[in-house]
Write a protein that binds this DNA or RNA. Structure first.
Length: 504
DNA sequence: CCTCAGACTTGTTACCATAGAC
DNA sequence: GTCTATGGTAACAAGTCTGAGG
């Protein structure tokens, strides 16, 4: 139980740390453990191209072994995997190799594959004593690299090894499958530890990218991975005090949430009736997260598998049923979630929720349909003019920003009343231009939406004008703002009749 | 105010040791 | 003794979310 540790109040410590974001006071470790260097294949094991043995330089051969080891897996038969692999492999090749090896289908890795299968077999057949020796060596490494000293406590590290090179697999239909995950060098690694301790030694002949002493973060080492350009970290094991306390905190938050869950539920339910689309979306999304425990669903990069969560669900991911399996108002979910795991569920929901969803879906469909409608001739032309205006304004903004930067620089170098005035003037100009740009952009989206949604028709024929009039009166908006002269004439009856309390 | 890098959590899978079945 | 099921854990991919900085 965190919080009642050996007479020390971790609660108090946590509170103290939390104030300025400090995660530790002292941190000492030996740095990450690197995978062994590549061992070239024995000369008896040959790679064949077009049926003929070809000797590859070690770097090229290494990448070939990554592929060869995976030959048993289904994914090496996938086109995306093969293309990505071959592209990256060719980049490692020498010019001569690249000239020769131009077609993956002519590559025969089977000897290499066989070699590794035999090696695993050999390892499996080792005697008990040999296995024991290996085990002890591994233990020694864990003992040496697997622990750190955090605020005087010896803590287990979660992943003390740098990830070895290989071919990226990814999950689901990942567009980057088969790409080469490059070998990480000490020169790529940032070390994080405290100032007053022994700094970890880089492997002989190498240096670290950087050694820093940032106690507002919990990681011991980091590097940038080449597939997505994300940062990878060496962090503590979940058994550590640091992780444990964080976990505990998480559940405490959940307990607090319990106290306000009723008000949250009534809040999102009332959002269902909001006149704002955004609010209704918010209300339904939160309802699903609450009812079905869906993940939030953040925005994703394009070059990852197409998976979604609650907020990134698309029209094709749900089906609405008035009746299904003797139930009313059923939402049928079918989508790929985290790790490309399929989520399939049929959920009866409140009628109101179903109506809103239906509404969301019909807006998407309407847009789809309206796209095919020819826009008025004058529309294209006026939009073009508007876009030119926007472009011009953007250039003006850029120019003004540059001038502002320059003015700031000059003011910094040689501050004077004149230079200060200039900076202020430029700041004003930039602000004004930005506002103008925003207005133009707003106009553009407005016009675009008008194009597809054909608001005019609804406004004149389908929407009871008394609703709009009432809204105007209630919100002190002049009716002139929403109806022009002709429209006001047409709806004179409504303007006269409806007060702010009108209910349709 | 918004974006996005960075930090951290969550989840799957591969691998391995071990226990029980045969 | 060998085979196989099982459970733990290392590895690492794939999420979430926050806060610094433009």
């Amino acid at each position: 139980c965190p919080g009642v540790h050996k007479g020390k109040s971790y609660l108090w410590e946590e509170g103290k740390h939390a104030e300025n974001g400090q995660k530790w006071r002292s941190l000492e470790h030996k740095g990450p453990l690197f995978p062994p260097e590549y061992e070239p294949l024995p000369s008896s094991v040959s790679f064949l191209y077009n049926g003929t043995p070809v000797i590859l330089r070690p770097a090229t051969e290494e990448v070939a072994t990554f592929y060869a080891k995976m030959l048993d897996h289904e994914f090496t038969t996938k086109e995306v995997f093969q293309n990505n692999f071959f592209t990256d492999w060719k980049e490692v090749m020498t010019e001569t190799e690249r000239q020769l090896i131009s077609d993956l289908s002519q590559c025969d890795f089977s000897n290499i594959h066989k070699y590794f299968v035999e090696k695993t077999e050999e390892k499996r057949n080792m005697t008990k004593e040999e296995k024991q020796v290996l085990k002890e060596e591994a233990n020694k490494l864990t003992e040496e690299y697997g622990y750190c000293l955090l605020d005087g406590h010896r803590e287990k590290i979660g992943n003390f090894r740098v990830e070895p090179p290989g071919l990226f697999r990814g999950r689901g239909e990942h567009p980057k499958m088969g790409k080469l995950k490059k070998r990480v060098q000490p020169e790529d690694v940032i070390i994080n530890c405290s100032k007053d301790v022994k700094i970890p030694e880089p492997p002989p002949g190498h240096r670290w990218k950087k050694v820093q002493h940032d106690n507002t973060v919990t990681w011991l080492a980091s590097w940038v991975e080449n597939i997505h350009g994300h940062i990878k970290y060496i962090m503590l094991n979940p058994s550590s005090k640091l992780k444990g306390e964080k976990d505990w905190q998480k559940y405490e938050t959940a307990r607090k949430l319990k106290l306000s869950v009723d008000s949250i539920r009534s809040e999102y339910q009332s959002a269902w009736t909001s006149c704002e689309m955004k609010q209704r979306q918010y209300g339904v999304a939160l309802y699903f997260i609450d009812k079905l425990a869906l993940r939030a669903g953040n925005e994703k990069d394009d070059d990852t598998a197409d998976t979604v969560g609650c907020c990134s669900l698309r029209v094709e991911h749900i089906n609405l049923h008035r009746h299904l399996d003797s139930l009313d108002y059923v939402v049928e979910f079918d989508f790929l979630g985290k790790d490309s795991i399929r989520y399939y569920n049929k959920v009866p929901v409140e009628k109101q929720c179903c109506t809103i969803l239906n509404n969301f879906i019909s807006i998407a469909v309407a847009i789809l349909c309206n796209h095919q409608r020819a826009a008025p001739k004058t529309f294209e032309k006026s939009m073009q003019l508007l876009q030119e205006k926007i472009k011009k304004k953007q250039e003006e903004v850029e120019k003004a920003k540059k001038e502002l930067k320059q003015a700031k620089k000059e003011h910094k170098q040689l501050p004077s009343e004149v230079s200060k005035k200039l900076v202020q003037k430029m700041e004003k100009t930039v602000k004004r231009l930005l506002e103008q740009l925003k207005k133009l952009q707003l106009l553009e989206t407005d016009r675009n939406e008008n194009k597809v949604i054909a608001l005019g028709t609804s406004k004149l024929n389908y929407l009871d004008p008394r609703i709009s009039v009432a809204w105007c009166k209630k919100n002190n908006v002049p009716v002139e703002k929403i109806y022009n002269k002709t429209q006001r004439a047409k709806f004179a009856w409504a303007i006269d009749m409806a007060d702010e309390n009108f209910q349709f």
